[in-house]
Amino acid sequence: MSEWWTYRPEDFLLFSPRVYWRLFELHNAAWWPLQIVALLAGLLLIVVLLTPRPWLVRCLGVVLAASWGFVAWAFLWQRYAPINWAIEYVIPLFALQALLLLGALSSGWLTFTDRRRLPRYIGLALILHAVILHPLVPLLSGRSWQMAEVFAVAPDPLAIATLGLLVSAHPARWAWPLMVIPLLWCLISWLTLDTMGAPSAWSPLTAACLALVTRLWPHAEAK
């Protein structure tokens, strides 16, 4: 792209905020009451962090893989891609993330038995934010609750909750590859929301930074 320095972020925004927010409204209406099941699935992440039994971790692998696959198909492909052609390049990444999570959690390669407090607390905070607080953001922004972004139904809370789970997972050599796609999505979402002037842009950005710092912290790896 020539003269790339003359482009502004808004030059790449293909849709208006009203169209973007209505995607979630229509998506929620189409899949209701799946959101209730999704909230219960979100609580499973918390249970795993608090009591990381192997069979629970395997269950979580299936649930998270299904969630990434579902969001890729039902939201990104069916709703978002028609108004944003760039999303077509993201959909395979979501499918890959589903496979990676299924493989890593179901095989027992990843464990959550790290007893150090800080990574677990930050992980729990990220998951609680994704599952409980993130759906409330529309109300704080003056939008309808019907536009709520719900864990396992919408991409942002799914990516944030996945990061929350992975910040205290070990070994790091398996956790890091699983964090790449959620971090990338948080970055994309932040850019999109910030360009639209949405105050909630802080949510994916803060989550990504917090997860990165926690994971990079020198004592993050279990001994």
């Binding site: 849709f15 208006s16 209505r22 028609p82 108004i83």
Partner: peptide, 12 residues
Amino acid sequence: WITFNVGDDSEL
């Protein structure tokens, strides 16, 4: 540009 990019949102 932007204004008519409304997907399959019947209301829009």
